[in-house]
Design a protein around this nucleic acid. Structure first.
Length: 965
RNA sequence: GCCCGGGUGGCGGAAUUGGUAGACGCAGCAGACUCAAAAUCUGCCGUCCGCAAGGAUGUAUCGGUUCGAUUCCGAUCCCGGGCACCA
């Protein structure tokens, strides 16, 4: 009986499905464990080998935990709202719901092919009205809540209204500010619209105005990555910024709690750091500078008030209104020109480019401490959205300020003496201040407080904590997303009643954007007539809470039953890519905190532990096509292939690398030897042939060698193509590591590999590739080795001719040692997500047991259980062949016993001056003194000592011996 | 530009983070079995010198700490990811 993985895998997948063995109950005596994958966006391209990496890891862990006696929740679903489906609809007219449904079916079939243990009865799809009903419902909770800064938590907005009605909103200290503070009487006298506007300033989901990338030619709003170099990716039309009404989530209110929460969860330090940087908490000061000849003040935000005497110029963001108010007459034209330039640039470009740009406004600010005049500039490196949109520039201490000053030849004041060399800024906080008036002689760190107090006394500055994080834009001018359950009447947003949910997306015929940057919903008369909000929610709405829905997916009364969410509680293990580091992971953390504050769930962090899977990159292959057609100016001379297309010539990599000019004669000769393309043409060096680099389907390339025959069949114009190969007759392709994508022909479909080698091999190979957390390019090359291992493992149990080999004999100590070493290593590796070394441990154990000719049940059965999480199909099959009646999924994990692997001696490496020279086998309980005596007597040691006495002998138990001469 | 990862044989990686560098696998080479092929098995396999024993060298580059550094520190170079409307 051979290892017939096709039959085995098909049969067991069918049996598992029929017996509903993966269905999980919300009610169990076993402890719970929740393993979650970041659910995929079901793109039209289907699953490629990069997707399953994390899924396989989580599947192994889930199965492992089940064997360890846990009630394991391991669900899967689809993040099925999103831009690509809408774009596809725009291009083809196919409804996103239709393509999404089709794509999901493909994804599910591909996933099932790999043998995952998902409980599909709990599947969620974010675009399903049964699901997004509750996304809308949670949005209403956000809309109807505000953040109470005293209690530091979300509370119902009704409490705030009650407070306004009875106490108004008055400052704790100081004078009330008109427009900001009001008494209860004033509140009660406000119009409904005035009240609504005040409340909008506190709601967790609120409406405001924000800038978007607007493309007039396409009549639509574009995502940042749809904008390239200031023009649209599609069509190359100009893109400008446009202010539109937008919904926001007040995530900034949660900045501190999101930051503090990081201490309570098990994320990698890198991930925590990324989130912390995104939140970007900094403390500093806001300082008001007077402007010469103007009423207005210039308010800047700085983290370094101690450097105030080093301010040589001010920079304000071009977007600030103030620019137009203070620009001087002689500078007005230059300023206007600059503003036009900035308007065309994306924020990303402004940050990324090294180019220093800016213009002087003609106005001067006054340093409050020494009355110095400070020129005010505008420049794109200052962002309107952060701080006050204005900075005080201290060139001797800040690198960007320094470059700016050098570029525009602004004189630099040195306030840190020797710490500044005139060439490069020095951001030290340790220097003693000079040229700094009353601060002279103070260490910068200590000067901060002195300045702050002086500013506060003068009433021109306050201490201020700032966050880089901005409120999250929560609306999109798109069709394929959740509609907002909001009706607009007289400019006031009213929530729909719960009973009116879900507010379903209307079916439309056209997905064209609405007028003036509005979403496609604005084109639908019935929608607009009902005064419904025309924006839709962004891609991350559904994913901000989907992990709760899996717990109670069919509940039509609540988003999730409270008892159930208390049982499953946090996700114990969350696996997904780092690309979500700051988006999804922060938003879902915020939503969880809000739901917790409103007492709708019992935990305030969604994920206990996060494991980041690395990205599987594509490894692209290129062929090099010689331009023989129009570009080479000799159309008529090119013979045609069978399909009536000009015959193409491809040169192998080494010719391309050497440079075509050098080799053109050789190449032309070779071409002519194949086919008479250049008949009668004098072969000269200066034709200037062009070579274009084309992506070739990686599935047609074996390593780097092109399969010429399949390539010729790939496209009609490649038929009869001529290949200029290397000396050995091989056509070698170029390579590059890029993102996996269909357009680069570097995707590998898991289905193909499963068909060829089986799901078990595929699963183990993906794990064997390297650590899950690490990014790496895909390479199918090594999969044979894993497949061979499984066949070898099979042969421990079954012989092709003799059938089952397993005997009931007593295992030897040696065999037990192999088994228990395997148990220890594999359990440990699985626990710490080191699946690649886990797989290699299986190989080692299998090799050793094969060498020992061990076919004993008492050794093989436990080993089989170890394998079950990694290769479930073959494990079930062999388990059944061993005569077991119940599934291997529900047995218990083998126990490691120390006594079988205990050693009494160890072979110590002996180094002389740090270089290993020999080995000594010594008892483990040996003392330092005994080691010294034995070591110096050793022949090899003697030789290296050359008669000298060792200075020192270092003996580290269980590690090594080092003799220092 | 800013933030975060990562650089180890021909290749993927191991060394559970200061203690024998290269486990396991791929590829390659030599051999066994076979009429042959597939499958399987055995041996070799970083580089340099050497028939070998052995020696030198070696974890991106340069420098440092240490009895000892792939691991820690400083500088540099290269690659990948994120940067708020891609998901």
């Amino acid at each position: 009986m051979e290892y017939d993985f096709r039959r085995i895998e098909k049969a067991w997948q069918q049996k598992w499905k029929e017996s509903k063995i993966y269905q999980v109950s919300n009610d169990s005596v076993n402890p719970k464990f929740y393993v979650l994958d970041m659910f995929p966006y079901p793109s039209g391209a289907g699953l490629h080998v990069g997707h399953p990496l994390g899924y396989i890891a989580s599947d192994i862990y889930s199965r492992y935990k089940r064997l360890k006696g846990y009630n394991v929740l391991h669900p899967m679903g689809f993040d099925s709202f999103g831009l690509p489906a809408e774009q596809y609809a725009l291009d083809t007219g196919q409804h996103p719901a239709v393509t999404t449904k089709k794509n999901i079916a493909t994804f599910k079939a591909q996933l099932d092919n790999i043998g995952f243990c998902y409980d599909w009865s709990r599947e969620v799809q974010t675009s399903d009205p049964h699901f997004y009903k509750w996304t809308q419902w949670i949005f209403l909770q956000l809309f109807n809540s505000y953040f109470c800064h005293t209690e530091k938590k979300a509370l119902p907005i009704s409490l705030l209204i009650k407070k306004y009605e009875t106490k108004g909103s008055m400052p704790k200290t100081g004078e009330p500010v008109p427009g900001k503070h009001f008494t209860a009487e004033q509140w009660n006298a406000f119009s409904e619209k005035e009240k609504a506007e005040i409340l909008m300033r506190r709601r967790l989901a609120y409406c405001g105005y924000g800038e978007v990338n607007w493309c007039e030619a396409l009549g639509t709003v574009l995502a940042n990555d749809e904008v390239v170099n200031g023009v649209s990716e599609r069509g190359g039309h100009p893109v400008v910024k446009k202010t539109l009404r937008q919904w926001y989530l007040r995530i900034t209110a949660y900045a501190d709690r999101l930051l503090e929460g990081l201490d309570t969860i098990d994320f990698s330090d890198a991930m925590k750091e990324m989130q912390a940087n995104w939140i970007g908490k900094s403390s500093g000061a806001e300082i008001d500078f007077s402007i010469n000849g103007h009423e207005q003040k210039l308010r800047v935000y700085t983290t370094r008030p101690d450097t105030i005497f080093g301010v040589d110029f001010m920079v304000i963001a071009p977007e600030l209104e103030l620019v137009n108010e203070i620009k001087s007459v002689p500078q007005a034209a230059a300023v206007d020109e600059y503003l036009a330039y900035v308007k065309s640039r994306s924020e990303r470009e402004r940050m990324a480019e090294k180019k220093i740009t800016g213009v002087f406004t003609g106005a001067y600010a006054i340093n409050p401490f020494d009355d110095r005049e400070i020129p005010i500039w505008i420049s794109e490196y200052v962002l309107a959205g952060y701080g006050t949109g204005a900075i005080m520039a201290v060139p001797c201490g800040d690198d960007r300020d320094h470059r700016f000053a050098k570029h525009f030849a602004i004189p630099i004041t040195n306030i840190i003496g020797d710490h500044y060399d005139g060439e490069e800024a020095n951001p030290t906080k340790e220097a003693v201040l000079q040229n700094s008036g009353f601060l002279d002689g103070l260490v910068m760190k200590g000067a901060m407080d002195v300045v702050l107090e002086a500013l506060e006394t003068k009433g021109i500055g306050i201490r201020k904590v700032n966050y880089k994080m901005r409120d999250a834009a929560f609306s999109r001018q798109r069709y394929w997303g959740e509609p907002f359950p909001i009706v607009w009447k007289n400019g006031i947003a009213y929530p729909l009643n719960e009973s009116e949910l879900p507010l379903e997306l209307p079916h439309v015929d056209s997905y064209k954007p609405g007028p003036e940057g509005e979403g496609p919903l604005a084109n639908i008369d019935t929608w607009v007539q009902q005064d419904l909000e025309t924006n839709t929610m962004p891609g991350y709405a559904g994913s901000s809470w989907y992990f709760l829905r899996y717990m109670d997916p069919h509940n039509d009364k609540e988003f999730c039953n409270r008892e159930t969410s208390d049982y499953w509680n946090q996700v114990d293990l969350y696996i997904g890519g780092t690309e979500h580091a700051v988006g999804h992971l922060l938003y879902s953390r915020m939503w969880t905190k809000v739901l917790y504050d409103l007492d709708l769930i019992g935990h305030d962090e969604p994920y206990k532990k996060l494991v980041n899977q690395g990205m599987i990159q594509g490894s692209s292959r290129f062929v090099y096509r010689l331009q023989t057609g129009t570009a080479a100016g000799r159309d008529n001379q090119i013979p045609l292939n069978k399909n009536g297309l000009p015959i193409q010539v491809f040169i192998s990599k080494s010719y391309y690398d050497q440079g075509l000019k050098l080799n053109i004669e050789t190449i032309l000769k070779k071409v002519n030897a194949h086919i008479n393309i250049f008949n009668g043409v004098e072969l000269r060096n200066d034709y200037g042939f062009l070579v274009s680099q084309l992506h070739v389907d990686v599935n047609m390339v074996n390593g780097i060698e092109l399969d010429v025959e399949s390539f010729k069949k790939w496209k009609p114009d490649f038929e009869d193509a001529v290949f200029i190969t290397e000396e050995d007759g091989k056509y070698i392709c170029g390579t590059e590591v890029e993102k996996m994508s269909k357009s680069k022909f570097n995707t590998v479909n898991p289905d193909d590999l499963v068909a060829k080698y089986g799901a078990d091999t595929f699963r183990m190979y993906e794990m064997f590739l390297g650590p899950v957390e690490m990014s790496k390019p895909w390479d199918t090359k090594g999969i044979e080795g894993v497949h061979r291992f499984l066949k070898k493992f099979w042969r421990l149990f079954v012989d092709e001719a003799k059938g089952l080999l397993v005997t009931d004999g007593e295992p030897s100590m040696e065999e037990l040692k192999v088994l228990h070493n395997a148990i220890r290593k594999i359990e440990n590796d699985t626990e710490r997500f080191s699946f690649n070394t886990g797989v290699s441990s299986f190989m080692i154990a299998t090799n050793e047991l094969t060498d020992l000719k061990c076919h004993k049940r008492s050794v093989l059965e436990p080993l089989l259980i170890l394998l079950a999480p990694y290769a479930p199909h073959v494990a079930e099959e062999l388990w059944m062949l061993l005569g077991n009646k119940t599934s291997i999924l529900d047995v218990s994990y083998p126990l490691f016993e120390e006594k079988y692997v205990k050693e009494s001696t160890k072979a110590y490496p002996v180094a002389i001056n740090g270089k290993t020279r020999t080995e000594l086998t010594l008892p483990l309980d040996i003392t330092q003194k005994e080691v010294e005596e034995i070591a110096v007597k050793d022949e090899v040691v003697q030789k290296w000592l050359e008669g000298k006495t060792p200075k020192k002998i270092i003996y580290v138990k269980n590690k090594m011996i080092n003799i220092v001469v």
